[in-house]
């Protein structure tokens, strides 16, 4: 019987710094069954995803996510300061990719009614969208759990502001049975609570068209820096004038008679002060 986890001993790992040891392939992993070896990673290196991953459409985000994209078959928490502000700007490329692959996207309890014409530019056609109008927290949880348990939808995007950690753990167990990504939109204050989701992202609107994304939790070392992703709403770049594309330099086009033509937007610093791990 091989030991489950590799324990470096003096004879085989003589005084090697941790970073170098992780750069070389860990010797003990070779002895493990492949399914176990795929799920084991060193704490200082970025883990690999066990299931399928879906490219996020943002190169900077893919580079820091285990497996290079959104994980399928696992919960992903999107922590937002306010529900309904930037979910589709962040996850739209993923949803479009899933719909292109023949999956259906189910929205559970969005804060406002979804607008089908507005989702078309993301690639989410009318045959691929389902809106579950679950109003109470219990209904949302139940509907999400049923969808994850069945495992037959392309992706689940659920707004669960009041879910407790043990409920998330239950959802995570169900999500592991399917290959579909399960995105949970939760308030930013939920970052203080523990969560069973293997990936937790905290997103804010940045200057211009940018989204500022903090990776709070992932399979790997904590990420210190904030990612700046350029994410204009889908469909907008096709029609906007060139001046609007210049990020961070907003242009006022307010029809006004007074002389306040330019509005200067302060740079928003949403960096958290304390780490939440």
């Amino acid at each position: 019987m091989q030991p489950m986890f590799h324990r470096p001993e003096a004879s085989e790992a003589p005084a090697v710094p941790v970073s170098e040891a992780s750069a070389a392939a860990p010797a003990g992993l070779a002895a493990l069954p492949p399914a176990v070896a795929a799920a084991v990673w060193r704490g200082d290196a970025l883990g690999r995803s066990v299931g399928t991953t879906w490219p996020s459409g943002f190169d900077a985000l893919d580079a820091v996510l285990p497996g290079g994209g959104w994980p399928g078959g696992a919960l992903t928490e999107l922590l937002l300061p306010q529900a309904g502000t930037l979910e589709f700007r962040l996850a739209g490329p993923l949803l479009g990719r899933i719909v292109a692959g023949g999956g259906r996207v189910v929205l559970v309890g969005p804060p406002q009614p979804p607008h089908a014409p507005g989702l078309l530019p993301h690639g989410i056609g009318i045959d691929a969208l389902v809106w579950v109008r679950a109003d109470t927290a219990a209904e949302r949880l139940w509907a999400t759990e049923q969808l994850l348990k069945a495992g037959s939808c392309g992706a689940v995007l659920a707004w669960l502001p009041q879910a407790r950690p043990e409920q998330l753990r239950r959802l995570q167990v169900h999500a592991a049975a399917s290959a579909a990504p399960a995105l949970l939109c939760r308030p930013a204050v939920a970052a203080r609570e523990s969560s069973a989701a293997p990936l937790r992202l905290l997103a804010h609107a940045g200057p211009g068209w940018q989204l500022q994304v903090d990776v709070l939790k992932r399979k790997g070392p904590p990420l210190a820096q904030t990612l700046n992703l350029s994410a204009p709403p889908a469909g907008l770049p096709a029609v906007w004038p060139a001046r609007l594309a210049e990020v961070g330099r907003p242009v006022s086009v307010v029809p006004s008679e007074a002389g306040h033509a330019v509005v200067r937007v302060e740079t928003i610093e949403h960096r958290r002060t304390t780490p939440f791990h």
Binding site: G84, F88, P111, Q112, P113, H115, P117, G118, P233
Partner: peptide
């Protein structure tokens, strides 16, 4: 372009 969420 139209928004993804529309108020009732």
């Amino acid at each position: 372009p139209q928004p993804a969420l529309l108020l009732a």
